[in-house]
Design a binder for these strands. Sequence first.
DNA 1: GAATAGATTGTCT
DNA 2: GACAATCTATTCT
Length: 205
Amino acid sequence: MLPAAFFARPALELAPDLLGLVLLHERDGLAVAGRIVEVEAYCGPNDLAAHSAGGRRTARNEVMYGPAGRAYVYFIYGMHWCVNVVAARRGVPEAVLLRAIEPVAGLEQMRARRGPHVHDASLGRGPGNLTRALAIDRAQNDADLRRGALRLLRPSRRAGLATPSTADVVRSPRIGVAYAGEWAARPWRFSLRGNASVSHPPRDA
DNA sequence: GAATAGATTGTCT
DNA sequence: GACAATCTATTCT
């Protein structure tokens, strides 16, 4: 189990360390899992791109103000769910958006959820697709990601997964936040260089 | 390959 | 009533 201290750090620090971790969702006795390959940090009241910009606190983003290591799940564009990992300490509303996973287990389930025409590498490519492949919705909001049906795991060497080196991590501007002015340009998106499951691949990757 | 439009609803002003 | 931390198909170039 990942220690609580792993999550209780600034989102900007936690974000790159989430790359390579495995996100697992167990439902109906079936395990579906993917390796995180793309994330974005949302850094509290000062970050105009964050739901907590200006210290905004509503029923929707309440989980961002809670303890680190919980899932913040929200609905967007009338049809997609997005999942974040809450960072920092209580009262500090920071989170890391999980934007893409590379399928690791439960491929058949993911294919069934995504439809017949989706390439395996794209099953969890993009935040909306990730939640669909892993069957994450409002029921997982505030779930403890250290334990439980939806949880984060260290990569297992046995499964052939390795912890990425810092040289494999690409920083780039966040996606879909053009309205946030100067904050939109900050390189607070982290992805694994050249990975086929990364959405909107940075040019140098 | 890039740009555009349409889908569709929870959330907040 | 406006808009959103998106995705897909379609229509350009």
